[in-house]
């Protein structure tokens, strides 16, 4: 009897804690957004974070994009040619990259490459009291540390996603046209005929911006909220990668429903 009561109490307490955390995260998000002017005023700090989040992720993003595109080219051709639609390879590859794979896979890579680094960095700064020190120097760590990292991520992410998609299309071109021998003109022509800048590409960009915000927010929040110990920081880093990845996939579904269902041109 008492064990049931304790169990229930534990579940209740856990739920309350989780809800309180969500509340804190929301408050944190508002606070970060309010610090935006500070981050923009000192663009140098944000540029630094674009360097860390974007430039350093460049190689992994471009190489992955190339390979994903090449695999799509092979697999896609394999299936399409069965239905006599090998000519549609460009459409298939372009649409899947621009609409889904570009933002999503780039987002997942971004979460594990840059998100975890941001969390670990802020978490360690907290552990070594650098955040407290900053506060005591009358410098708001939200403005000096958190906001530039957040905006750096938000700016870097869509660019990375676009690079990923571009490299993917190029990879599919290499495999499809150069290797398999789909006609060059057909590949590009069909792709252009059925992929529209608006809404296909713009929606992809919107998705990547949303993912960038989600990943960056989760990363800075987990770092800021990390328990100031070595285990605390490592747990927070794990939570960033897992949480951000789940957030990307869930948001992708929601956004896809909103973006592509209402337009009647699936």
């Amino acid at each position: 009897m008492t064990s049931v009561a304790t169990g229930l109490r534990r579940v209740g307490a856990g739920t309350l804690r989780a809800i309180a955390r969500v509340g804190f995260a929301a408050r944190f998000f508002v606070a970060v957004v309010l610090q935006t002017p500070a981050a923009l005023r000192r663009i140098q700090l944000t540029a630094r974070e674009i360097y860390f989040a974007g430039v350093l992720s460049l190689v992994v993003i471009m190489v992955s994009g190339l390979f994903v595109g090449m695999v799509l080219g092979l697999q896609g051709y394999d299936v399409l040619v069965k239905y006599g639609a090998g000519d549609s390879l460009g459409i298939f590859v372009g649409l899947s990259l621009v609409r889904e794979l570009g933002p999503v896979v780039a987002g997942l890579l971004f979460a594990s490459r840059a998100g975890s680094a941001i969390t670990a960095e802020i978490g360690l700064m907290k552990t070594t009291e650098q955040l407290s020190a900053m506060e005591m120097m009358a410098v708001d760590p939200l403005a000096r540390i958190v906001a530039p990292r957040f905006w750096g991520g938000v700016i870097a992410m869509p660019l990375l996603a676009a690079l990923f998609s571009a490299m993917g299309v190029f990879g599919a071109y290499l495999v499809g046209v150069r290797l398999i021998g789909v006609d060059d003109g057909t590949f590009w022509g069909n792709m252009q005929a059925s992929i529209d800048f608006w809404p296909d590409i713009t929606n992809g960009i919107v998705k990547s911006i949303v993912f960038g915000m989600a990943v960056s927010l989760i990363a800075v929040f987990e770092g800021y909220d990390a328990h100031p110990t070595a285990e605390g920081v490592s747990a927070a880093t794990t939570r960033t990668v897992v949480g951000a990845s789940l957030a990307i996939l869930a948001l992708d579904f929601v956004l896809t429903v909103f973006m592509f269902r209402g337009l009647g041109n699936t």
Binding site: M125, E129, Q130, S132, M137, A138, V139
Partner: peptide, 28 residues
């Protein structure tokens, strides 16, 4: 405003690890 007139030395220094000694002192 008050904290600008207070200096604080933290337990293990809490130096900003991504800045040089010079930049650390220049920071405030």
């Amino acid at each position: 405003a008050l904290r600008r007139r207070i200096g604080m030395l933290f337990q293990f220094g809490a130096l900003f690890t991504d800045m040089s000694v010079y930049e650390n002192v220049a920071f405030p």
